[in-house]
Nucleic acid binder design. Sequence first.
DNA 1: AAGTTCAGCAAACGATTGTTTACTGAATGG
DNA 2: CCATTCAGTAAACAATCGTTTGCTGAACTT
Lengths: 191, 191
Amino acid sequence: MLDAGLHLLADQNLASLGVREVTREAGLSPAAFYRHFPDLAALGVALVEESLASLHIMIRAVLAEAGGAEELIDRAVDVIERHVREHRGHVRFLARERHGGVRQVREAIDAELGRFAAEVGAALAPQPESRGWSERDLRMLAELYVDHMVSTAAAFLEALETDPAREQRIAATARFQLRLISLGRERWQAG
Amino acid sequence: MLDAGLHLLADQNLASLGVREVTREAGLSPAAFYRHFPDLAALGVALVEESLASLHIMIRAVLAEAGGAEELIDRAVDVIERHVREHRGHVRFLARERHGGVRQVREAIDAELGRFAAEVGAALAPQPESRGWSERDLRMLAELYVDHMVSTAAAFLEALETDPAREQRIAATARFQLRLISLGRERWQAG
DNA sequence: AAGTTCAGCAAACGATTGTTTACTGAATGG
DNA sequence: CCATTCAGTAAACAATCGTTTGCTGAACTT
């Protein structure tokens, strides 16, 4: 049922999805839907959890890897690119519903992205570049990274669906921007 | 009719909007819709143009202002905050439909944001900090600024609708992040 | 082996949908 | 002053919708 929903949401949007539509795609009767979810919003929230599970794994993979800033950036962008390609449906769903029409889903996504930022912040803390940073500053830096990751993922997705040749350009742009942020971070203490 | 649509889109999204719904809100008969638009997608594109007109003015206002990096950042964040408050409906529409279910609208928004990035890049070029930068690098920096602006605007919007007290925190975060990017930019030539 | 939960079905309900058609009155222009 | 465009209407079309109801068979539990 979740798969059916996700498949429909490829070119639709949660608020415009219909109960009958989902059950038809799943090969079930309309009434069967209510055996599993009270609402379409509930199905949306379930999809959020499913979508962010794999994303969570991805982020941990990047954070776990030690190494210099350069290699870390390259690796992060690569992982994002691959993740978008391998979980296209999930990424599209998240991008589309993050500011979409269903409040419960919006809030679920935002809460989870907030947790990501906290996790990134925690991983940043022990690094030598973070010496002297307040927790607040670290959090704001982490949010910048997370927002940038989201933007990059959305750009990859759009490229994948319209002009795949653009992928390289997006990857190069993302790396450049991350390097810029990294430089600013190193210089912050001096300011 | 556009106003009616925008009002409906406050808690809905374009793909789930109905012709009858719009005309009912506008106090007209269903058939009247087709006198003005062939599609709901066409109404969406019209709303994109309306929404981006004011945004364009806002961006020019920020870019025109000369001054040091610090004051420019403060001013930019203020302008964004005020713009979101004064054009809440437009901003919400753009955030929601940027990755929404209607391709024509998505493409219209992306094209216009690309034009914004070009404009920002052109304004960045003559600044002393840009000495030695290739056009490509300037463009990537401009895209970072535009993406950051979009993220910030979306955050302001979400705060306005759920927890207005959070506005200050978002503004502070945005300023911090912009300062970080600015520092990275200054240091870039050295790398 | 009896009872109970579970996941599914067909059918039916009124309500709402998008779109077309033929018609109307007002403004506009030559 | 006549013709034409324009923005609106009511009515009708089949189609789809969300949801409830009562029923069925399979799978567990005890």
